[in-house]
């Protein structure tokens, strides 16, 4: 997926959870990404974060830091 689209989608999720009460928004973003994003999408996210994470909402960056990158597909 194009980086712009991936950034847009991730930021949309962050925007929703930022509005939710409580102090665990980053965890909620991480949970949502883990539950609904297929591993290669998450790998793309992690790769983008690793290369600076330009354009990503700070909440996404925080979430990504707490997520385990999915293992590379074993055939």
């Amino acid at each position: 997926m194009s980086p712009d689209k991936m950034i847009h989608m991730a930021n949309q999720i962050a925007v929703f959870f930022r509005t939710q009460p409580g102090h665990d928004q980053a965890r909620k973003v991480a949970d949502h990404l883990t539950d609904f994003w297929e591993p290669r999408m998450r790998r793309q996210l992690h790769a983008h974060v690793a290369s600076g994470g330009a354009g990503l909402d700070p909440l996404v960056l925080q979430a990504a830091a707490s997520m385990k990158p999915p293992a590379v597909e074993a055939g």
């Binding site: 997926m1 194009s2 689209k5 539950d35 609904f36 297929e38 591993p39 290669r40 999408m41 999915p70």
Partner: peptide, 18 residues
């Protein structure tokens, strides 16, 4: 145990070649 691709994600992954 991992979620799969949704339709728009399938199309993105196709364009990407995976």
């Amino acid at each position: 145990p991992e979620p799969g691709l949704r339709i728009p994600n399938m199309l993105d992954a196709a364009v990407e070649g995976t």
